[in-house]
Design a protein around this nucleic acid. Sequence first.
DNA 1: CTTTTGATGCCCT
DNA 2: GGGCATCAAAAGA
Length: 184
Amino acid sequence: MIDLTRPSQQVARDLIGALLTFDGVGGVVVETEAYDIDDPASHAFSGPTPRNAPMFGPVGRAYVYRSYGLHWCLNIVCGPNPGAAVLFRALEPTVGLDRMIARRGLTDIRRLTAGPGRLCQALGIGTAQNAMPMTDPPFHLEPAPAQVAVIEGPRIGITKAVEQPWRFGLAGSPFLSRPFKPLT
DNA sequence: CTTTTGATGCCCT
DNA sequence: GGGCATCAAAAGA
């Protein structure tokens, strides 16, 4: 099993290539971002609030929040200390394709789960899953079966701590929410 | 292909 | 009341 008590940056990296499903629907994790309590871009930065409460609870639970009033975003709580989590940004859809296509109203596999909001819509994740343990059914999470090539870069859609390279991706995956800058 | 804009709810100061 | 860890559709080039 993935060691969720490690710092969020390391967990975010470990999760690339892992299999994540919810209620028998999901795929391979291809993109994540790490957030931390000492991180101005994190919801946990200003301390516990009603919204971010799961981030200060046990490791392995889900932290689901509403984004821009319309979308849901899924995190897994981790870290040696409270207030850290990893945001799931994209999957490669592999399990339950028909249900994801139905929920998203799309047949374009590349856009089924490429983005945190899209991913939650495809898996049927919402506020009901907040604080739910992701280590037990109906969630299923298993480590990457083999070593994978991981690339990193700055996080997306934030305005603070933009310079931190805490976004991780599966190298060459066509299922990323956005491409990573070429490493030069 | 890229950029822009509107939809939309809710937490926090 | 400001500001989002977003997305899809529309408009420009």
